[in-house]
């Protein structure tokens, strides 16, 4: 019962994050929504794994957290430099492509 209530709360939070990703006027709203959605997925997996009595799913939650972290780092780097490779010596001058 406890886990079910928590699961519903996490689902509601996921809906809120998704609505921000859909509506979000700026790029940073969407980046934050993606990051938050990944975190909520980790929480959902953790809660569901205890709800169905298979706590070994927690390893998956850890992998999701790592993937989410790397993805957000990549997105932020892209949104700052406009590309990935050949980063200039002084960061943030946005030589070509430029920040979004």
């Amino acid at each position: 019962m406890k886990f079910a209530i928590v699961m519903i709360a996490v689902l509601v939070t996921m809906v809120l994050a998704l609505s921000r990703a859909i509506a979000g006027p700026t790029v940073f709203d969407r980046i934050l929504a993606l990051n938050m959605f990944g975190t909520k997925t980790v929480l959902l997996i953790a809660v569901v794994s205890f709800l169905v009595g298979r706590p070994d799913f927690l390893d998956l939650a850890l992998v999701y957290a790592l993937v989410n972290f790397i993805g957000v780092i990549a997105v932020l780097r892209y949104s700052q430099h406009g590309h990935f490779g050949d980063v200039p010596a002084d960061p943030g001058d946005g030589e070509d492509g430029g920040p979004i």
Partner: peptide, 20 residues
């Protein structure tokens, strides 16, 4: 750019669904 963000969310949703 927003589409790439949303496909990331889509993948997280799909992965949770497969896990369930």
């Amino acid at each position: 750019f927003a589409t790439v963000m949303l496909t990331g969310i889509y993948s997280f949703l799909g992965a949770s669904w497969m896990l369930l």
